[in-house]
Amino acid sequence: MNADELNDIVGGWDPAGLPTNIRVGAGCFLERKESFKRFRSRRNPGLALGDRVKVYTWTEFNVEPTGLVEVGDDSTLVGAVFMCAERIRIGKRVIVSYNVTIADCDFHPRDPDVRKADAMANAPQGDRSRRPVLEARPVVIEDDVWVGIGAILLKGVHIGRGARIGPGAVVTRSVLAEGAVLGNPARAVEFLELRSGKRRRS
């Protein structure tokens, strides 16, 4: 491994080499260059990172040509896998932990016949222009939200300010400000004290 290859995975690379529609704020830490490998947005900006955003090695910005991802100041993305066809907006001081997926689209149609056609259009040698138009619904995560380890956030959810998304939660519905959810599908829990051992199996 040469010096450049090392820099590419430990945050020593120059973000000036990223596509021009990616905006990076002051004092950001971008650990792994490959996090941006599947960024294909043609919007400008297609990705906007605020100031002092930390992007750790497991994060991936999978952004379609029509997608826009925005991340507010002082947020930390540990293992955030973004699947973005339209818009994913993350506020300030948000923590997204390990193994998290955030998707604003299902990326394949629900109807089995249409999905079969999509499978063919999506083949390695397939005609991508024949892919169906897919419904996307933006995901919004407000300021000061903590997204726990292994959570999955699906299209159209709005996570209110200060909410807590429990570990492994599969979030299909919006969460109120200061709310807390856990489970699959995620349900509101009265008081999510995930560190104290207060919430027992019952």
Binding site: V78, S97, N99, G148, I149, G166
Partner: peptide
């Protein structure tokens, strides 16, 4: 892909 952590929203 197991995670063992001292907090639910763990980070480095």
């Amino acid at each position: 892909e197991v995670i063992i952590a001292d907090r639910f929203a763990a980070q480095p």
